[in-house]
Amino acid sequence: MTSTSIPVLHKVLDKAFSPICILATFVGIVMLGMLLYSTIVNGLPWFDWQFLTSYPSRIPERAGILPALVGSIWLLILTALIAIPIGVGTAIYMEEYAPKNVITRILQINIYNLAGVPSIVYGILGLALFVRWMTLGRCLLAGALTLSLVILPIVIIASQEAIRAVPNSLREASYALGATKWQTIRYVVLPASLSGILTSVILALSRAIGEAAPLIMIGALTFVPFLPSSIFDPFTALPIQIFNWVSRPQEEFWGLAAAGILVLLALLLTMNSIAVYIRYKKRIRW
């Protein structure tokens, strides 16, 4: 290469780099488009009222998703009831109470490390702890407790960020009025960080709804011809039913899987829209 061609090369690179980056961005968008397209094309023919209101069946035409949908909604509610108080409570402790010392640092590092533990490992813990040790069996409650383990670190970290975003001047103003620590948290910090906490909680719950591996570990059933009527009943969930259909050798069941995915994505989309709505409408700018 001659010495004059190097600046030319650099000039070309300079001009070409931005389009290359845009191309990379398109990879993501195109992949998402193809994923949605193939799911809709394969799933829509199977997606009807009968599919939503029927029990699983060996015959694809008669199979439906009702027990899985009901199971997922049960799990959603139970997981929210378990994970939100503990997660937000931990976040409040870490941001408002915890002294700056070694124990706090260990707690914080531990939370970050928990966030990186693969969900299937939580499934193994759930199996040993809830299903066998607490002898809950393979029931809804064991499933919800296991999913709570999976999303707890996410709820904590995101809530911590929301609480940290509340300016200190608000707390000081509250203390200046003679409020106690809990009064300040209850009436100043929590209302100010509520939208951030809610958004992150909803996103964490939508992660829980899509998890299959931990539920398979604790032994959620793949064929459930009934609806659970209490938290101690056996159950199935949307991702497990989808997995069951995908892993069958007959390709007719792939259509059912795609229709199941449409139901799951619709549920997730609803939850995410609520999160986005809260994020944009209730956001407080400091």
């Binding site: 993501g28 968008i29 998402l32 193939s38 799911t39 899509g210 991702p239 792939w254």
Partner: peptide, 23 residues
């Protein structure tokens, strides 16, 4: 772009499995 990335991150992994196997 950011919402597209968030959607990609939020899609359950069974769905990606289905996409890999059938597409």
């Amino acid at each position: 772009i950011k919402p597209v990335l968030e959607v990609l991150a939020g899609i359950p992994t069974v769905v990606y499995g289905y996409f890999a196997l059938t597409f």
